[in-house]
Design a protein around this nucleic acid. Structure first.
Lengths: 120, 120
DNA sequence: TTGACAGTTGAATAATTATTCATATATAAT
DNA sequence: ATTATATATGAATAATTATTCAACTGTCAA
């Protein structure tokens, strides 16, 4: 199936290395999920929302004030984050309160921040 | 400056929480760099290239075969990764060999993989 | 020197997506 | 009931970007 139809336009130069790496490569789904996760936090607005929610539970208006953006923008991004399962919300009166619902996000941020300090 | 011109279209509901979070928020540049880092690895092709290079030094043709994509595609993405300083290359004869040049990338992948296994 | 191969790169195309705008819903207050 | 507020959401717009295609450079071999 996947290995029988070739899209690459060149020959293998180091067959051993290629075979060895091919064996260790995770499947397509894994890479798609991995890329989706990083894509999710690869946006300034979502980064800031998640960072804020890591400090404190917040409603949409508070987030809009912290980020200095419209409620609509924030709400759209919160919907994305909610669909991906990294934040959860509870309703109380007119307001909807959001919290971070994923332990790994903060760890990724920590390593990311170390990375930034190491480079320019 | 940044706090005097308001783009948000609502009032603060919880002033204390907002102030506290605002104090702890990193600056704009930090979030931009952080988002750029995650954007960099938030692409299936680049994920696979980086994963492959973590296993073994490889030339462009080998990578094209491992990923089953054209040399041109791979080369374009390698250029992106090179500009961001996460891979480096050495030339030998006709070939150009790429290696991973960033300790943090692998750590981010590890956490990402744990994340995937925890969720769907 | 000619041809083949490895790799790069600019331009074009296609796809994705963040924000805005307008509107809709639900809750609270008057 | 009516009005104001908090939030959500669909559609449109604008910006970003991954891949393809074509052309180019540099290296090796004959």
């Amino acid at each position: 199936m996947s290995r029988n139809e070739f899209s690459c336009d060149c020959n293998v130069i180091h067959q051993e290395a290629v075979d060895e790496v091919l064996q260790k490569m995770p499947n397509e789904d894994t890479f798609n999920h991995l890329a989706d996760l990083f894509k999710l936090i690869g946006d300034t607005t979502r980064c800031r929302i998640l960072f804020a929610l890591d400090q404190s539970e917040m409603c949409v208006c508070d987030l809009a004030n912290v980020l200095n953006m419209t409620k609509s923008s924030i709400s759209h991004q919160l919907a994305v984050l909610r669909r991906s399962g990294v934040v959860k919300c509870r309703k109380s009166g007119k307001e909807v309160y959001y919290t971070l619902d994923d332990e790994h996000i903060v760890k990724l941020f920590e390593i990311g921040l170390v990375h930034i300090n190491h480079k320019g």
